[in-house]
């Protein structure tokens, strides 16, 4: 593929800049402009506006940003914004590390141990089962499992491992991370599996012939070659978790703060400028994370 494009370059370079090329790119470009760039610019603009209970007042004021960081100079007690970001980042990291380890393992199994394509498809479909019901119902169903009178607690007490029901199982950081992992591991599996399927099987044989142990093959051959999938999966998981407010809300018993939740509360109280300012900050943080991730691999080249 890359060989053909490089030989064809002289022709296609001219074609790429011609009016026909612009025309071809125009529909997608317009969609992007209309539904991505314009709204984003509007959010940025509104974040500097003023507002009352019932109307937005065009202005240029930094007061929304000042309000967000109000009290953050006090070093002894973290302000709400920093505390919230800390908690969101913590969930982000935990969800990322678990989905990565589990997702990589599952993808590895699917790619290298399942021999037939038919079986791979069946197992893949199995991985999507968590998405067969609605988000809220799926999360509410954790209650009978993890709750005070739930299956797990009944079992633990039945086995006499504990004498009191374990409260930390539900409405806690534990249950939030559990739900994230349950929901988002598939986003890791798909891209990593995709990368693994492109690995030339001859390389594995070569590693074996050269005397590498299975672990060495995994670490020195498979992991580096699955890098693109890992990074893409990480971007999926991190961006979703950073903006999430439903999962943290339901599984955390609404007692755990998240940046998304704050924005949601503010929009429902018509505090659009404040919410916009929060969204801009969140966007900046997420972009920085993604930028750092893309430093590690040139996705455009690898795809």
């Amino acid at each position: 593929m890359s060989a053909t494009t490089s030989t064809a370059r002289p022709v296609s370079a001219a074609r790429r800049t011609g009016p026909a090329a612009w025309l071809q790119a125009a529909p997608l470009g317009l969609v992007f402009l209309l539904f991505f760039i314009v709204p984003l610019v509007l959010i940025l603009a509104v974040s500097f506006w003023d507002a009352s209970e019932y109307e937005l007042i065009p202005a240029f004021t930094p007061k929304n940003y000042i309000a967000i960081f109000d009290g953050c100079s006090n070093a002894s007690d973290l302000c709400v914004t920093l505390k919230t970001y800390y908690s969101t980042l913590k969930f982000c990291f935990l969800a990322w590390i678990f989905t990565l380890v589990i997702g990589f393992t599952v993808a590895y199994f699917l790619a290298f141990h399942v021999k037939t394509v038919g079986m791979q498809t069946v197992l893949f479909l199995l991985c999507t089962i968590p998405f067969w019901t609605s988000n809220v119902i799926r999360m509410i169903s954790w209650v009978p499992l993890l709750g005070r009178n739930g299956l797990i607690n009944d079992m633990l007490i039945g086995l006499r491992l504990v004498s009191q029901p374990q409260e930390w199982l539900l409405f806690s950081s534990f249950s939030v991370v559990l739900a994230f992992v349950h929901l988002f591991t598939i986003f890791m599996i798909v891209p990593i599996f995709n990368s693994m399927m492109r690995i030339d099987r001859a390389l594995l044989e070569a590693a074996l012939d050269a005397g590498a142990t299975p672990w060495q093959t995994l670490w020195n051959v498979i992991v580096p070659l699955s890098r693109t999938g890992i990074i893409i999966g990480s971007i999926f998981v991190i961006t979703i978790v950073m903006g999430d407010f439903v999962t943290i809300g339901v599984m955390g018993g609404q007692q755990i703060a998240s940046v998304g939740k704050i924005i949601q509360v503010q929009t429902s109280y018509l505090q659009f400028p404040l919410a916009a300012a929060n969204a801009v900050i969140l966007l900046a943080v997420v972009l920085m994370i993604i930028w750092a991730l893309t430093r590690m691999v040139d996705i455009r080249k690898e795809l």
């Binding site: 709204p39 509007l42 959010i43 509104v46 937005l56 949601q264 929009t267 429902s268």
Partner: peptide, 13 residues
Amino acid sequence: STTRRTLLKAGVA
């Protein structure tokens, strides 16, 4: 919640 998200993205427009 989708409306809210859409709102976030699209702002007042």
